[in-house]
Design a protein around this nucleic acid. Sequence first.
DNA 1: CACCACCATAAGAAAAAGTTATGGAAGACA
DNA 2: TGTCTTCCATAACTTTTTCTTATGGTGGTG
Lengths: 312, 312
Amino acid sequence: MNITLKQLSILEAIVEKLSYTEAAKSLFMTQPAVSMQIKQMELQVGMPLFDRDGKRVTPTQTGTELLYYAQNIRQQLEEASEMIEELKGMKRGKLHLTMASTANYFAPQLIAAFHQEFPAAQVTLDVSNRRGLLDALDNNITDMVIMGRPPQNKKINGIPFIDNPLVVIAAPSHPLAKREHIPLAEVADEHFIVREADSGTRIAVERFFAKHDLQLITGMEMNRSEAIKQAVMAELGLGIVSLHTIEMELALKRLNILNVEDFPIMRQWHIVHRTGKRFAAIPEAFKNFVLQHAKELIDITPINNPSSMENT
Amino acid sequence: MNITLKQLSILEAIVEKLSYTEAAKSLFMTQPAVSMQIKQMELQVGMPLFDRDGKRVTPTQTGTELLYYAQNIRQQLEEASEMIEELKGMKRGKLHLTMASTANYFAPQLIAAFHQEFPAAQVTLDVSNRRGLLDALDNNITDMVIMGRPPQNKKINGIPFIDNPLVVIAAPSHPLAKREHIPLAEVADEHFIVREADSGTRIAVERFFAKHDLQLITGMEMNRSEAIKQAVMAELGLGIVSLHTIEMELALKRLNILNVEDFPIMRQWHIVHRTGKRFAAIPEAFKNFVLQHAKELIDITPINNPSSMENT
DNA sequence: CACCACCATAAGAAAAAGTTATGGAAGACA
DNA sequence: TGTCTTCCATAACTTTTTCTTATGGTGGTG
């Protein structure tokens, strides 16, 4: 059976008006158009839908029963339309985020603030390592990714939205802990506890040392920056971590930031998505929200004089 | 929102295949046609429905939610299609009959036999007087009418399907009851108990007498032939009624048929409907059934020698 | 009985949908 | 890494469908 939605609307209009002419008027079309559509519909159905009485037109049993389905279908379309308006008006909408594990130290604030402004957003948050992030982007599993170093790939669009300073940390008892203006070369003699080889932080650090013609001495590898902090506090060596991840340890004076020359390594957090990605209203709103408000929302410890923190 | 059923089908096909090309194949159309329809649908909706990933195509949230409605609507259409097949296949169907009160003496047999062959028919039976019958036809309230004398009107189509002999009845005690070959003129002197003036039977009887240049002496008027029979049995006069209405009274010898010259007045029962009426399967089947089987089904007392009945 | 309202039909115009041809971008595979 | 293939987008053109205008028939109405 091959009927159209317009034909069903015409059916409804005729039953309401009991007149082809009036139905045509109410649908802003001419009467012959109505006649023809009904004729065609009757051909499709294989049965008459209306009795033409001269005086008025009355639906046959078939017509009456078909009307029921026409009404149901219109109902469905109206609901679909409402659904769309809800999504457009951001009364509703999903947002799937994936972020680097280190971003986990500040991103929840961001999400919380966003959620306050757009309470209808249903946010899903995945935390993953770099590989997982790239997979999520590749397979279009996620709307957006928050990560340190987006791949330089034309398929991927990454926009920096906030600084991500990497600092050298040491246990307060470490010999260098109280020193100021430590030359980079001196630090390079120390043992470093580092992230795994394909981690964003690790890559950034190695590039940084290479740029200064130095070799990083990597003692232990850990796949969580949480573990690195623990190791550094246990005096197993120095660490280089994102400043955002050590807020509490600084406050409790369990870690010191070393005042090393050329530090911090200034990186950025990026909001990253597939280049062609077409966002619904809520994800689009999140992207804009982050780009506009991240700096205000994320409390960054002043890192120009990190050693001042230990002196207070 | 102005989308089409075809567009919804395309949406479903793409979500199933995750490919425009494959969807196009499954719908027996070309890929550009699919592209264009989706493009247009996205324009209507105001939001993207699919992400083009290069590798495969994935529905957006909007696309996924719209799919739900598309499926519902298809479901409705399938049900409508089934409904139509049921009506066409006569697995179901209404039949609205209206009949003259005098037809009530034989019509139930007819309906019973029809119902046995088409058990799915939902029959509605109204009994009415001549005026009611004509109104029902005029207002298209009924599918068909069974009556004695259909109006000679091009809007109305009436087909005779069985004889309807009108006979003169008398109480067995009436002086004429045992006579044979009673001249019409002699009967015309008697008092007749008749139906109301616009009754079909009454009109037929008056025409008959007028044709023979006789005047009918009408004593009492009754609006039920049942009442006429009672009056005749009570010896209030003679009556002229349809043979079909007195089967029981004859069997019980409570009434005699007078052997009057030129009697019975031979009329026919007609099956009558609006000229343009387009029947569904069940009403059409009933019409054919009546025209083919009525004569076999209705037990007609032999009326060529009605007096023989009283002699047995 | 004439007029009016309403539906059917035909012819032509307009709109929509579809097809073929082609381009660009991305994945696959050597 | 480059070639090949696949897939979607786009454009030009064709076909199909739908709509409009014009007109005729029929029945209701004053």
